[in-house]
Design a protein around this nucleic acid. Structure first.
Lengths: 92, 92
DNA sequence: CTCAAAACTAAGCCATTGACTTACAAATAA
DNA sequence: TTATTTGTAAGTCAATGGCTTAGTTTTGAG
């Protein structure tokens, strides 16, 4: 069932593998090297609490990023890039 | 300039803030609690190398996830959820 | 079929992050 | 003003991320 839904999605998307694979490069096309979590968040007009919930991190961690105490890891950087360029995917 | 592009995007998306904000809930709507990285990857027909590149993690980390030695952190779970439901955003 | 390369499993090790905490300051609203 | 929300700052520690090595399975070329 879950499987069917997934395959339907893939079909509707138009064979995701193809889409994904002709960008064999390290996939840096949309990744941000040093994402500025604060500017992305403020441009989305969200509080730290809301944005942290969106990214599924604790507020403390977001604060660590914004205060440059910690640097977001790989997946978090990709996610920030998506938040910056495709915020609509979070809405569903 | 970068700012203009971003704002244009927001406009075209239709005021992302609104989209995002009427889902005040912990944003679990699309998040996977225990994402199975391996099944998502194999259904996208990608190798560990390719998928790791997509998520911007090392192959070792992806292997840790697939072998259940480590559990992906918050942002990684969100990212896996997006890979499973909106793989097209990675293609741009 | 044979053999080499690619893909993957498995596990030890350590630096960095994520998350919790406390204390305080700024901004916002009542 | 006063209370509440939002945010800065920093200490602490368990868990993850990424590195390593060693071995197994799968794949494809000859």
């Amino acid at each position: 069932m879950e499987d069917t839904m997934f395959n339907d999605l893939l079909a509707s998307v138009g064979e995701a593998k193809e889409i994904l694979q002709h960008k064999k490069q390290p996939s840096r096309s949309f990744m941000i090297d040093e994402p500025d979590a604060k500017s992305i968040r403020t441009r989305l007009k969200m509080t730290q609490d809301e944005f942290a919930g969106l990214l599924n991190i604790s507020v403390n961690t977001l604060r660590n990023w914004e205060q440059a105490r910690r640097k977001p890891e790989g997946p978090a950087r990709v996610l920030l890039g998506i938040a910056a360029t495709h915020p609509e995917v979070f809405a569903h």
